[in-house]
């Protein structure tokens, strides 16, 4: 059963995440609104994964707060995430999806048809009975996407879901992301691939060293970047 209220907007209020002496996210204020996909870009280590995990509710801010639809501590019943390195349960591909369906209280009688549908969607129909941990990296990433979609989320976080895929598989994933977004599911996706950001973004959030450098609609960001970091990054030069 879905809560009647929405998890959106997700609001970061001056959020800092620290691990010991290391500051991973540094005073981030940000609002994620319903609508077109928000793409997080930034070099490796800029804090994209941590920001997604914080928005999902997996990481607690050391300072500041995160609210979902104006409320704090909202359990992730309407949010799903594909982690950068998804963990595969020690079960078959289809059982991984069944687990997610059961965790979101999908009726037993509906589970099998949903599993078939989701595996077909990500192109793993032939591998339903393969132990998930025996799938290739790319196949695991697609299974993780199917498992996230099994939760029927209103918001889907994706952490570099095409990083280990070849162009054909990347296109397949981007098509799914596009279709999911068309259905009204909010996409928040990290990538360090600028081409992918251009293809998918409604708006852009750029991170650098744990801070939000620049945000805005994708067209404006790519055409008239406001900061030196963004210009360097868009020009394809090394941003360190």
């Amino acid at each position: 059963m879905r809560a009647p209220t929405s998890d959106l907007p997700i609001r970061f209020e001056n959020v800092t995440v620290a691990a010991g002496a290391v500051t991973i996210l540094d005073g981030i204020s940000l609002t994620l609104n319903p609508g077109t996909p928000t793409i997080l870009i930034g070099p490796n280590g800029s804090g994209k994964s941590t920001l997604l995990r914080t928005a999902m509710g997996l990481v607690r801010p050391s300072q500041g707060r995160v609210t979902w639809g104006g409320r704090e501590d909202v359990p992730p019943t309407r949010r799903a995430i594909v982690l950068q390195r998804p963990a595969m349960l020690r079960r078959s591909a289809s059982a991984n999806i069944r687990y997610a369906l059961r965790a979101s209280d999908v009726a037993r009688t509906e589970q099998q048809s949903r599993i078939d549908e989701l595996l077909a969607l990500v192109g793993l129909g032939q591998l339903a009975d393969r132990p998930a941990r025996r799938l290739s990296g790319g196949e695991q990433q697609r299974l993780a996407l199917a498992r996230a979609l099994a939760r029927d989320p209103a918001i889907l976080f994706l952490d570099e879901p095409t990083a280990s895929l070849d162009p054909a598989a990347t296109k397949a994933i981007e098509d799914i992301v596009h279709a999911v977004s068309q259905r009204g599911i909010k996409i928040v996706m990290a990538t360090h691939d600028l081409g992918e950001a251009r293809r998918l973004a409604g708006d852009i959030v750029m991170l650098h060293r744990g801070r939000v450098i620049e945000t805005g609609p994708a067209a404006a960001f790519f055409n008239t970047p406001q900061t030196g970091e963004a210009r360097t990054f868009i020009a394809g030069e090394l941003l360190v």
């Binding site: 997996l58 982690l83 349960l89 079960r91 687990y99 997610a100 965790a103 979101s104 939760r151």
Partner: peptide, 23 residues
């Protein structure tokens, strides 16, 4: 290994223990 995934799937304490022992 499982913590983030099970937390993201909103699995409660009893379900966690059962999943971990089974797997």
């Amino acid at each position: 290994e499982y913590r983030d995934e099970l937390t993201a799937m909103n699995v409660g304490p009893v379900g966690r223990v059962a999943t971990l022992i089974w797997d």
